[in-house]
């Protein structure tokens, strides 16, 4: 994919040689050496017929339930979540579930209407790579991951809410609570 930003050890970088190709619905999978991202329905067909393939990722639409990926979560190299419109926030919750509830450790990629001003939110919710909308300058989008980035609530990136973190109370010697 073009215009991809990935988090390498936590810091965002433009990756001009990202190998992944988003497969059009209905296109032929066979005979391809490049890693491909399959639409969910397509992937479902293939994953049952074959052994796990490190060159196959899956694209989940906003109305598809991430629960259905659970059997494959441990070996999927990449899950892409679709933002059909940047104002459609369903993928934030899907990302949260994939990371915190279903334990997905691979690359979680934002695709679709992915824009600079939402990247911080995506990172908080567990996305690790961002396919910036192709008409947008990727280096400009990188700026979206810089600057102040702390929230009160817990998130995938900050699993402990602000008030349970020691730094809030420099004089406190203990952290109370049950976690």
């Amino acid at each position: 994919m073009k215009n991809v930003i990935t988090l390498k050890n936590g810091s965002p970088e433009h990756d001009p040689s990202d190998p992944w190709v988003l497969l059009e619905a209905g296109a032929d999978v066979m005979g391809s050496d490049t890693p491909i991202i399959l639409p969910f329905a397509h992937w479902l067909e293939h994953s049952q017929a074959r052994a796990p393939d490190p060159r196959q990722g899956v694209l989940l639409g906003p109305d598809e339930d991430p629960l259905r990926l659970v059997p494959a979560v441990s070996h999927l190299p990449l899950i892409a979540l679709q933002f059909p419109d940047f104002r459609d926030g369903r993928a934030y919750s899907q990302a949260n579930l994939l990371r915190l509830r279903y334990g997905f450790r691979g690359d979680l990629r934002a695709v679709g209407d992915v824009l600079r001003d939402q990247l911080l939110l995506m990172r908080h919710c567990g996305f690790s790579s961002f396919a910036i909308r192709e008409d947008k300058p990727v280096l400009d989008a990188l700026e979206g991951l810089r600057g102040f980035d702390e929230v009160y609530a817990r998130s995938v990136a900050n699993p402990v809410p602000r008030y349970r973190r020691q730094s809030l109370k420099p004089n406190a010697h203990r952290v109370s609570g049950t976690d």
Binding site: G89, Y92, L121, V151, Y152
Partner: peptide
């Protein structure tokens, strides 16, 4: 107020 402020999951409801 604090919890909901900039809560990243719920800004595009």
């Amino acid at each position: 107020r604090q919890w909901s402020t900039a809560n990243p999951e719920f800004l595009f409801l």
